Amino acid sequence: MTQLTELDYKTRLPDTPVKLCLSLFTGALTPHSLWQSAPFRRKFLLRALIMPVSTFKVLNMITQHPAYPELLQAQPRLPCRLHRPYLSNQLTRRECTDAIIFHYKKITALLDETAFIKHLSGEGIRLCSFSGKDGGDYYINFISTRKLDREGEASLILKRADGQMLAEITFTLCEKEQQAVIITGGLQGPNNPDSQQIVQAATKNLYGIFPKKLVFEALLVIARLFNVSRILAVSNKAHVYSSLRYKNRQKHMHADYDSFWEMVGGVPTDRAMFSLPLATTRKGFEEIASKKRAEYRRRYELLDKLTAQIETGFRLKVAMSF
């Protein structure tokens, strides 16, 4: 078996969808330890034969991508992404296929090669960093990670300086009616035994902003930079882990999606989705009790800093055509 990192993709990686399919099935190419399992590879081939058109389209996108080896290594389940529920249990296979292809086409056009590969790395792109009330540092990274690949292709992850994850929101860029749309398939907080205490401490240090609210605010900035016309989000009912296939994984859903989307101004739509606002409304200081104005001022300053850093960071990293 040949490990992907040992390959010169220009001469040795399979250059067609059929060749890639066969290389993965035979074990000649193992971008991750998952592909070292013969049962996994047999299931892949069987499902590829059952759904050949969608599988071919995704494999073709992979083999034609300028960052083919990095993409396959960062997202080793991408060749079989459509063989399982993905993004929302309300979407058709064709919609999921189109979403994956559009996402990578759009992201590749927006980011230069270095930035695209960076967002595939274990660290991702550092979008912003800031200090909380107690002086502790926080940061938000833009990353494509396989551990969240059922819920989307890219994530915004808020962490403390010590690496403790506080919130992550996962999405895929799609196209609807010739307009770019974000579909948010995942929203999670920490999964620690003391997660409630961790979130409460972070909220206090972030001047009363919930960690999930902060990554949502970051998503709104990304949506503006990517010229997104609409943001959709899965409800509890539409989440992939609500699929019959993942019944035993529903314990991994620690978030009440419906309540959060309603809190940020989301409106229920058809197909068990929410339509989210493209911007949030801030209270005027005259509406805020005098004893709370200082806290709100610092909160707004933090949000303004987050926005400015993300805009500056992506302007430095996006391709010249953006």
Rank of each mutant, 00 (worst) to 15 (best):
V240G: 06
I209S: 09
S235V: 13
F216P: 09
L225G: 07
A180E: 02
P193G: 11
L214A: 09
Q196A: 13
K251D: 11
P193I: 06
R224I: 02
N236Y: 08
I231P: 02
A255T: 03
N227E: 14
A255D: 03
Q188L: 01
V240E: 03
S229D: 06
E217Y: 14
P190N: 14
K247T: 13
F216R: 09
A180F: 09
Q196T: 15
L225N: 09
K251A: 05
V181K: 08
Q197A: 01
D194K: 15
D256W: 00
N227V: 05
S229K: 14
V240C: 09
Q178G: 07
S242A: 15
I198H: 13
S242F: 01
Q250W: 00
A201S: 15
I231L: 04
L206E: 11
M253F: 02
I198P: 01
L244I: 01
Q200P: 07
V228N: 09
K251S: 02
V228Q: 12
H239W: 06
G208W: 00
Y207W: 15
N191V: 09
Q179Y: 05
L214Y: 04
R245C: 10
K212V: 07
S242E: 08
T203L: 10
Q197T: 06
A233P: 08
I183S: 03
Y257L: 09
F226L: 14
A202Y: 05
D194F: 01
L244D: 00
Q200N: 12
A201H: 06
R249Q: 06
C174W: 11
N227C: 15
F210D: 08
T184I: 12
G186D: 11
Q197H: 10
R245Q: 09
Q178R: 12
L220A: 11
S242M: 06
L225C: 07
V221S: 10
L225R: 08
G208K: 11
K213P: 02
